[in-house]
Design a protein around this nucleic acid. Structure first.
Lengths: 177, 177
DNA sequence: ACCTGAACACCGTTCAAGT
DNA sequence: ACCTGAACACCGTTCAAGT
């Protein structure tokens, strides 16, 4: 929460940098994100970025965090349980590449590791809420199984149509009355 | 298949380079793999590696391919269907990090993308064979669902014990008579 | 407090030149 | 055929120095 003009100006600058980072992630993914590149885009010296972000990983996390919340801001059209899970999987697939990059960095980076866990926890809560909105009592077991189903299907080398089929079959078998 | 002495010598050299790359992957993962580092380990000039591998991605694929086959060479102890799937998931988790790295590179690299698909196809066949050895008739749907279950559970931020529980419940619900 | 310039220690890849 | 040396164009990070 910014208190004075200095803090507000700082947040603006942080916002600019994160926006530039997001632009680079949107076209080109993680391997297109570089501190040097972001600085270039903003007409800054390379070292200037480090005044606001202590490392490239901190910048990565900030950028992905923004995209993550934007993507999941919309509410599911809650009709059937199946449609909720399909919607959820669709959102998941939009950020799958960036989540993979974050997880890759999590092997080495503290911030990335923590953010990776936070994303997973958040997604789990989202899925459970979607289910309870559908009137489905979802114990933790079912929630975890559905979560695994969504994540796992995304990773398979198949068509989107086939993935939807698998989700449908999985939901039918995993969600008991 | 080597034909003459020159080809054999070449394969030996390729083997040395791949072995050095594997060593680096084993401790440190993908971010510890560098063409420069491998060359240093072998006392070669950096450019020498490029006589055998046209790019870092080709070297990565060769190294991971070796580890992949070594890990999956052992046969499952085939008792129950559940134990087969648990065994399969255990193997999967051993190469999960490297598969993630390969998939990350697949976004840009031709060889990495092709190898990533080959791994997935191979794993799918392995799982189906394990199931049929157990006397379980596994139609493609069940195989894909189990595959997704294994991959998805690996990605969840839980303990190994909990993962095994989820696999057990998933197998019970997904494998119908 | 914010930013620059320059350096450091790395990369992947290419290429002329050697044997 | 195989390898070296050197270059090119990049990195992430640090730090003294400026305002």
């Amino acid at each position: 929460v910014p208190r004075n003009r200095a803090d507000i100006a700082r947040d603006d600058k942080v916002g600019e940098i994160v926006a530039a980072a997001r632009d680079r992630l949107v076209d080109g993914g993680y391997e297109n994100l570089s501190v040097a590149g972001v600085a270039r885009d903003l007409g800054l010296a390379q070292a200037a970025v480090y005044w606001y972000f202590p490392s490239k990983d901190h910048l990565l996390v900030a950028a992905v965090e923004g995209m993550f919340h934007d993507i999941l801001a919309a509410k599911p059209p809650k009709r059937s349980t199946l449609s909720s899970v399909l919607w959820f999987t669709e959102r998941l697939s939009e950020i799958a590449d960036l989540r993979r990059a974050v997880r890759e960095r999590a092997r080495v980076s503290q911030v990335a590791a923590e953010f990776d866990r936070n994303m997973a926890d958040f997604l789990r809560v989202m899925l459970m809420n979607a289910l309870s909105d559908d009137g489905v009592f979802a114990p933790e077991d079912v929630a975890d199984l559905l979560m695994a189903l969504c994540e796992g299907v995304l990773v398979l080398p198949t068509t989107r149509k086939r993935k939807r089929e698998l989700i449908a079959m999985g939901v039918e078998r995993l969600v008991s009355g």
